[in-house]
Write a protein that binds this DNA or RNA. Structure first.
Length: 271
DNA sequence: AGGGTGACCTGTCGGC
DNA sequence: TGCCGACAGGTCACCC
């Protein structure tokens, strides 16, 4: 589910409620992708200073250390009352003075990982490989063009790789490439200055548009308040194989790249 | 070194 | 109705 827009909408939804609150308990009901890396009791009494995001990770910055949260493919966070019964996939609770931050994740590809310091630990390692933030100034055009030139793979594969830019997943990779009128199988190095500028803009525009619409809900995703996103209803190609292209009237196609579906319009997008 | 593949885990949907 | 395979928003460890 969650690509950058869904994670950002989630972050915004929990930030005000959690900032300044103290942790009273941590409950891990079922293991997630990685171990938490700390005993719950060690986190009791710590205060949540800020709720940040890096790529698809939500970062709870405590008065000491950070908690890294990832939603995997099917995760969602919500705020529960302290006496609210947990469901079969509610695997993690962060109990705070303002209620329970609960992670529901049927497929358990998500994770919550603790980092105590600035040193090298599993959580910091997860963050250390990440490329620039698409909505920040760190995502500059020149750097993006250099990164494209250096890659040997297809542009769609590279967008998912997270080194040229973070936060772009399977939905928004297809959507950004459509906006930029670039075929998904195009080798990175074949993308010149004009097209790379279009793609750079398209990535930012599509992610921001999706945030504004509350993200995309294909199946599981809901925001903190239980609301679905609706970007999928304005998607130009994702999930629209066999349907009419809104731009040229042709037919949207679906191919498989690296075992993942890619949607594009052969009439609008070229290698 | 960089790029492709399998693995992780569960639920849902379509076809037979 | 029931079973089985394909597929789903991510990404890491592993092979060549």
């Amino acid at each position: 589910m969650p690509e950058l827009p869904e994670v950002e909408v989630t972050r915004i939804g929990i930030s005000d409620r959690l900032c300044g609150q103290s942790i009273t308990d941590v409950v891990v009901r079922k293991s997630l992708r990685w171990p938490l890396g700390v005993e719950g009791r060690e986190l009791r009494g710590r205060t949540i200073a800020r709720v940040l995001r890096r790529g698809k990770y939500i970062i709870l910055e405590l008065d000491q250390g950070i908690l890294l949260l990832h939603l995997g493919m099917s995760g969602r966070l919500f705020l529960a009352a302290s006496d609210q019964p947990f469901g079969p996939h509610d695997h993690f609770d962060l109990v705070t003075s303002a209620g329970v931050l609960r992670l529901c994740d049927p497929r358990r590809f998500g994770a919550v990982v603790w980092s105590a310091s600035q040193g090298v630990d599993p959580a910091r390692k997860l963050l250390s490989h990440l490329g620039p933030e698409p909505l920040d100034e760190s995502f500059d055009l020149k750097g993006f063009q250099r990164a494209l030139k250096a890659r040997r793979c297809s542009v769609k594969t590279a967008l998912l790789g997270g080194e040229m830019v973070v936060g772009v997943g399977n939905i928004y990779a297809s959507e950004a490439l459509f906006r930029a009128l670039i075929g998904p199988t195009t080798p990175c190095a074949a993308i010149g200055l004009v097209r790379s500028r279009r793609l750079h803009s398209a990535i930012r525009d599509v992610l921001q548009a999706a945030i504004d619409r509350g993200g995309s809900t294909l199946r599981d995703y809901q925001d903190v308040h239980g609301r679905a996103g609706n970007y999928q209803s304005v998607a130009m190609v994702y999930g629209r194989a066999g349907q009419t292209c809104h731009r040229c009237g042709g037919t949207v196609a679906k191919i498989v790249q690296n075992n993942r579906s890619t949607f594009f319009c052969p009439g609008c997008q070229h290698v």
